[in-house]
Computed example of a mutant assay.
Amino acid sequence: MAGSGEHIRALVRTHAAGDDSAFYSVALQVAAREARLGHNRLADDIKKAVEASRSAIPPSNVTRLALPRGDLAELLTASNPEVSLRDLVIAAPMSAQIKQVLSEQRQRRALLEHGFSPAHRLLLEGPPGTGKTMTASVLAHELSLPLFTVRLDALMSRYMGETASKLRLVFDEVASRRGVYLFDEFDALGADRSGNDVGEARRILNSFLVFLEQSSPESLVIAATNHRTILDRALFRRFDVVLTYELPDARQAGVVIRTRLGSLARGIDWRTVRRHVEGLSHADLVKSAETAAKTALMRGDAAVSVEDIVTALDARKAASVA
């Protein structure tokens, strides 16, 4: 009975973690045990149930998306992004840094065996809409990992001690389930509060720093912020990589627009378009391209015109400064 009890505990544990692969493995171990005891019909029934359940799940080369459960369900949202590195329009030096992070993660075993930790704590800072959140999605996709976005609204609490305990839950998950964990709008958590609230806010930040320092190199922890200047200075040295995002230059802006328009971008004078992109973020450019595309399609055209794009860009720029 001892062996049976261990199997039951393992089944409950793997089911609670949402780990189907481990759950089926334990189930097959139970089937093998029953077969050894001469319970062949029961063993066959268990095997058939496992095979039927497995066949109902579509194959994927991405780590299966196991949704957070219990208290974590309120703190994390999970996704399997489909955006790749080639979709990220950034400067060459930053692209090289991201590729280095990917290489270190892919070869983390070799690095750890020699006493080196792969880069796994990233701080992304820069204006809104410049690709920070998209970078987290790219890293998750390229490493075939789920992306877990931390819900700061659920994490932050006005009750003393609750936020720190919730942070511990998140970082326990970082250690137990390999993935990419994104703290978006991180300044809500990591802002320098030394000038006013030095109580609970300071304790929260100190807790985060401790957890970050001890975080598992098996997962990536990413903090993204639009406001570098208000972050506590103690944060920067705790991250392995700090990436600074900027508004796209004229060439990059053209690539963003052309990529979003796809086959609708035919015969465009891009030199004219580039004169209207200054001050717009990647997100602004995507929205402008979508507006131009819808204008052309509703007009019955199979391609956008330069005027469609320029009008959309100028309108977006006017709205952003209004």
Results as ranks from 00 to 15, higher is better:
59 P>F: 11
161 G>C: 04
61 N>F: 12
158 R>W: 01
139 L>D: 03
55 S>A: 14
316 R>I: 08
312 A>H: 02
138 V>K: 01
242 V>T: 14
49 A>C: 13
111 L>N: 06
41 R>I: 10
268 I>D: 05
254 G>T: 05
32 A>H: 05
237 R>S: 12
136 A>N: 07
158 R>I: 05
5 G>C: 11
106 R>W: 12
278 E>A: 13
259 T>V: 08
87 D>G: 04
161 G>Y: 06
276 H>L: 03
243 L>S: 04
318 A>F: 12
267 G>W: 08
63 T>R: 15
19 D>C: 07
79 S>W: 05
30 V>H: 05
293 A>V: 04
20 D>K: 10
177 R>W: 02
136 A>C: 09
150 V>I: 15
224 A>M: 00
170 V>K: 02
160 M>F: 12
19 D>F: 07
111 L>C: 10
90 I>D: 00
116 F>P: 02
300 G>F: 09
44 D>H: 12
52 A>K: 14
26 V>S: 02
130 T>P: 05
103 S>W: 13
17 A>S: 14
21 S>C: 09
63 T>V: 11
305 S>I: 05
35 A>F: 00
320 S>M: 10
115 G>S: 04
272 T>Q: 11
239 F>S: 07
168 R>I: 14
135 T>Q: 04
251 R>V: 12
280 L>D: 00
61 N>H: 15
174 V>H: 04
200 E>F: 00
272 T>Y: 08
36 R>L: 13
72 L>N: 03
196 N>S: 14
117 S>F: 08
130 T>Y: 00
204 I>R: 08
6 E>P: 07
92 A>D: 15
299 R>L: 12
16 A>H: 12
42 L>T: 13
106 R>G: 15
321 V>W: 07
230 I>S: 13
240 D>G: 13
158 R>F: 02
38 G>D: 01
171 F>H: 08
176 S>Q: 15
286 V>C: 09
186 F>D: 01
317 K>S: 15
316 R>A: 11
116 F>V: 14
72 L>E: 07
162 E>K: 08
103 S>P: 03
216 S>H: 06
18 G>W: 06
9 R>M: 10
151 R>H: 10
58 P>V: 09
292 A>H: 02
7 H>Q: 13
234 A>M: 08
56 A>W: 10
